[in-house]
Design a protein around this nucleic acid. Structure first.
Lengths: 264, 264
DNA sequence: TAGTGGTCTAGACCACTTC
DNA sequence: AAGTGGTCTAGACCACTAA
């Protein structure tokens, strides 16, 4: 026998899925359900909290508990890194995702801080440095309108970026073409990348910064960018609200018994 | 001012991170903290529940609340699909991950059911069929020892697999080489793939089936497999416990102004 | 100011594990 | 049987939102 709060949550979830409560609509007030005999206030509250953790509703004091909109995922393919965008065009590289998906660019949708820090171990490993070696960290919080969608922190070796716009701590994108363009102009043309992804529950700090609904997981993306010579010129860590993105990769089925073939 | 339960949870989380409580060790009993003046039982319980949702501890009745082990992520690269493994070798394709990471193969670590179903919309879209068209669904639950790690359901078009071992509903891997080998023998050699990933909170059913700790997210993987001619021969949906996997992809930075180059 | 969800208490009782 | 976390109640009070 499931606990009472679980049964109530399941009942409400079922009603939401059947469309009896539509996105944007309010669920019954907690006190109403208490009077209707669904349990004490704490019990009903536990059920509402479960629904919130499962991403079905959001609650706010003074307003009520409303059914969440189901926003379609933004699909991120590797085309967002197309050299033509940042090398030849006017686009700012790290808003390429948005451009690719047809959203308008608005100013000040990104805040940025640049600082010289001691490399955390993952960063040091990617750059082939010892832990604690000095690296430049360029952290930005990317928003879509008022809504933060992800944070992205790039780490650079000082000898690659000192004297460039990248270490100029002016808010906003690093000028035309963004960070990849700056590296290109400095003689470091990016050539290939490795992306590594995993999901986890957010820290309390991330919940605050990304304005995550309770229970929403995050996807952490580690991106290592190499020149043709194999030098790592950027290692970036992104933290994304899970419900807003999907990642897509195309590749040939490898065959270690055959020479490498062209990329899909 | 954060709620009392949040402050207590943060205090304990900090102690865990500092190593004052080591993995496997018990946290203080709820009643102890109540007596120590940390709040009422409900308050302390709320803090413990938050720690559990954040993946730091697991609680069980009669036993206590223990700090979780931090198991290293299994890294999944595309090498796990290497043709040499399933075409030439003895390995069963869908245990290739395990073999690659040095784990022994044990029998009966996989249950399997095969059935003819009406294609859900995502499946129909991938195969270029109309929703509701008949497809074979081969569902398995992959375990490592007693611990389920992910479920994987493959969808095939009937004309590709009828008469093969794939539609023989015997539990266990589909014989030497697994599903890709069966398709190969039937004249459908796989050539390239598309993988699409996103994270979400699990359904109640998935929590049960994958034995997920409360609050643990899942990663859903959609894998589309093509022949060289571009025919989709398999579309698979995997549901993975988030804390156990990371995915890795290598790729060239695309350049739409240049001809395609070799794959990294 | 009225109405909403959120927190907190004190205590009873339940369900599971371990001995 | 003893000890653990989990559920539940009844009610007080707090914090935020909207009219």
């Amino acid at each position: 026998m499931a606990p009472k709060w679980r049964e109530l949550a399941d009942k409400l979830a079922e009603q939401i899925r059947r469309g009896e409560y539509e996105p944007g609509q309010r669920l019954p007030q907690i006190r109403e359900l208490v009077e209707a005999g669904e349990g004490s206030k704490a019990t009903v509250h536990a059920a509402y909290k479960a629904l919130e953790a499962e991403g079905l509703v959001t609650s706010s004091r003074g307003h009520g508990t409303v059914v969440r909109e189901r926003v379609p995922l933004k699909r991120l393919g590797i085309a967002r890194y197309d050299k033509a965008k940042w090398r030849d065009g006017d686009e700012v590289a790290f808003i390429a995702d948005r451009v690719a998906s047809g959203r308008a660019y608005r100013r000040n949708e990104q805040t940025q801080t640049v600082s010289l820090v001691e490399a955390p171990s993952a960063v040091a490993a990617a750059h082939g440095l010892e832990a604690g070696a000095p690296v430049y960290a360029r952290a930005r919080l990317v928003k879509e309108g008022d809504q933060p969608t992800h944070s992205l922190t790039s780490y650079y070796r000082p000898e690659h970026v000192e004297g460039t716009r990248l270490v100029d701590p002016t808010p906003g994108p690093a000028g035309r073409g963004g960070g990849f363009r700056v590296l290109y102009d400095a003689g470091y043309e990016i050539d290939h990348m490795k992306e590594s992804l995993f999901a986890r529950t957010p820290t309390a700090e991330e919940v605050r910064m990304l304005q995550l609904p309770p229970g929403e997981p995050v996807v952490e993306l580690h991106r290592t960018t190499y020149t043709a010579a194999g030098t790592v010129v950027e290692f970036a860590i992104g933290v994304h609200a899970a419900s807003r993105f999907a990642w897509e990769y195309d590749f040939k089925v490898p065959d270690s018994a055959q020479p490498q073939e062209g990329q899909q």
